[in-house]
Amino acid sequence: MMLKIGDGVNPRPKKINWNLFFFLFPAIALIIVFFFIPVFLTFLMSFTNMSTSTGLTGFKVIGFKNYLQILKSQWTLKILKNTLLYVFTTLSLFNVGTALFLAIFSTHISENAGKFVRTLWLLPRITPSVVYATLWTWFTAEAPYGVLTQFLSPFGVTSKNLLYTYPWIFIILINGFVGASFGMLIFTSAIKNIPPDYIMAAQVDGASTLQIIRKVILPMIRWPILFVTTYQTLSLLTSFEYILLTTDGGPGFYTTEVWALYAYHNALSNYYGNTLFGFGAALSVFLVILGIIFSIIYLKVFNFKALISEPKIEV
């Protein structure tokens, strides 16, 4: 007879243990207060015309008008495409790609050099957002102000505001340099946790470094890769501060506007003081739905259940 995990261990009757709720309560309360209630309120708000000029009391319920406005808008598709471009390019090139490269690279060189590389990549993350974004805007400004333009001028590049000339390249670079460090730290600790026996065994078998990375390291850090991918997808989906601080969604018609920024612009920021809370709420509801869809896809694709099940062997 084959023994299954859990067989014979702790054969408790399936009864709800109410004591558990006592210990789970703080976490449950936090999730209710900071996630479910805001989402519910946002959902309710999205059916109103609430804005600065209506205040929090003088608004009217307008049904699905906000949603219709979003569906009818000529920019909905473009902003959605921008969002996907932003999330997946930054994610694949930097937040997972560069992070993985840095983790493997910095664990394959001497300990001190590895630490130096990792510290260097942490700098953008510990720099305050506004300072970091301002540095980039100065870096890419017109000559004689912009360092990059001056550097490129001998190569025949005419002086231009580079941030506005190649907005997407810079948006991805600006976000990527910050984003890579998170994955880098997690992957590094995961790689360091791989028992050296496996690597040594592979080396004895004559495996090259590339083969070791492909056949030993990567499969063994699948779980951290899934975690970083999921976590960073969701956080990129809702992050917009570097776009706000650099191109502010421009130039022109929503060139670099992502969904979260679009919601922010409508709900909370307006040059002439009248912000549209209701319409912004409807945009946020879309964002929540988008986040849920991504979470479900990841859970299915990466087979989340198998990853969190108990290991079949002792590592």
Binding site: T52, S53, G55, G58, Y272, G273, N274
Partner: peptide, 15 residues
């Protein structure tokens, strides 16, 4: 202190 145009949304809102 703000721009004159804000009297419309802010007055309407009762701010």
């Amino acid at each position: 202190l703000s721009g004159h145009e804000d009297v419309a949304p802010w007055g309407e809102a009762g701010y």
